[in-house]
Design a protein around this nucleic acid. Sequence first.
DNA 1: CGCCATCTTGAGGTCTATCAATTTCAGTGG
DNA 2: CCACTGAAATTGATAGACCTCAAGATGGCG
Lengths: 235, 235
Amino acid sequence: MTARTCMVSQFEELAELDDEEKALLGKLESSVQSYAAGEILQTEGEENAPFFSLHEGWACSIRLLPGGERQVLEVFLPGQIMDLHSIGFSRSQSELLALTAIKACPIPRERLEMIFSKSPRLAQLFFVVLAREHALLTTRIIDIGRRPAAERLGHFIIELKIRTRSREKEFELPLTQSIIGDALGMSSVHVSRTMTQLKDLNLISTHNRRLRIENMKELMHYCRFDPAYLSPGPT
Amino acid sequence: MTARTCMVSQFEELAELDDEEKALLGKLESSVQSYAAGEILQTEGEENAPFFSLHEGWACSIRLLPGGERQVLEVFLPGQIMDLHSIGFSRSQSELLALTAIKACPIPRERLEMIFSKSPRLAQLFFVVLAREHALLTTRIIDIGRRPAAERLGHFIIELKIRTRSREKEFELPLTQSIIGDALGMSSVHVSRTMTQLKDLNLISTHNRRLRIENMKELMHYCRFDPAYLSPGPT
DNA sequence: CGCCATCTTGAGGTCTATCAATTTCAGTGG
DNA sequence: CCACTGAAATTGATAGACCTCAAGATGGCG
């Protein structure tokens, strides 16, 4: 995936784009930057911070509590716009952390607002993108609020498997168990225990920062995954 | 609050509207309907369901799990558009439940999409509205994922106090403890215990479906509420 | 080969859920 | 005005899920 087509490709899954629209989107992603794993792209409460489109690698948004607790709000994969929802606020709502070495492109706020006035159709697509992130958040709320640890972790794994679009049983999972815990509202220790529990059931296995789903059907059944959420359907 | 100005008033908090924009919004809210408390406006997975703008009363969106567990995703107050985020999907993403007797106006999907093409500026405001709902969801994730019950309930109470815009210490809270529990990922029994715990600390009190915050400052301190989230700031 | 972060495993404790029995309360009809 | 009723809230007892602390194993990387 080349840098220029990064966001374009995400939007083309939603609708066909004409050349002008592609050009507008391309202009947003002019200066791709590299960040090292562990680097913080943006801190919480930053004034007038840019958005970032993620081109390569994994990142996440984080909110910190006064007591030092951490909550991972979203895990970002290439093609996503990070912190898009902060458009309604003057300050950034969360910290952005590079989980691997990444390539990302800062997008000044004004530039996005320009798109809104120039292309109503793109604006509507941005709306849909935001709505999909919204849907991911709601499934996370259900996971954390109402599902026991094993189901919670299973759902998370299935979600990532789908979102990575890997067609193999196996895919790269560059998340520490500490990050997974902070995403799912559990301790890293309990992530470890739950992980081995799923391994003992022969549902998954891990080698070398890669995760393998041994039996997707059984895994889905085990954690009561509702396949209805697999195909979101058109706008 | 008259029916016609319901959505308009919400938008006017974000930006000034000209007459044409007000007219466009007003046209959306043509047929206000009444629903009884406990009535279900929309079931999960419904095809091509309309949106609803809420004019009077309280409502919420709910997702049900196969085992019968319930998760309340959002609590809606007058002026809000319910289930706005389902715009990215062909099916409704959650059930809509009237918590009190309410007045609401169904808005066909096409009508909203019409607005997007007619008024880019209103589209942008809808975007901001969605982003704010997004922010409420993320605070909920942090509450459920990383805060103990007492803080969680305290944050919820403070959020409602702010959102109701009541300038008194006391405001109407027509939520059963069962609904509160399903919103905060805890059992109704534990909501009761936590509630009396806050009462024993003289932070709150309740009479007759009304909740009184005895000492907002102490309550905020007790549940480590970060005042930074009080003023979201302009776009 | 050795280092540092990550992961694993055990023991003990805390928080919250569940079950079940009352009590309170709002609403209804006599 | 009061008794009746069903829903909601309270309270106690018990169980289980998950957390914390701490020690040891693993594994990627220079």
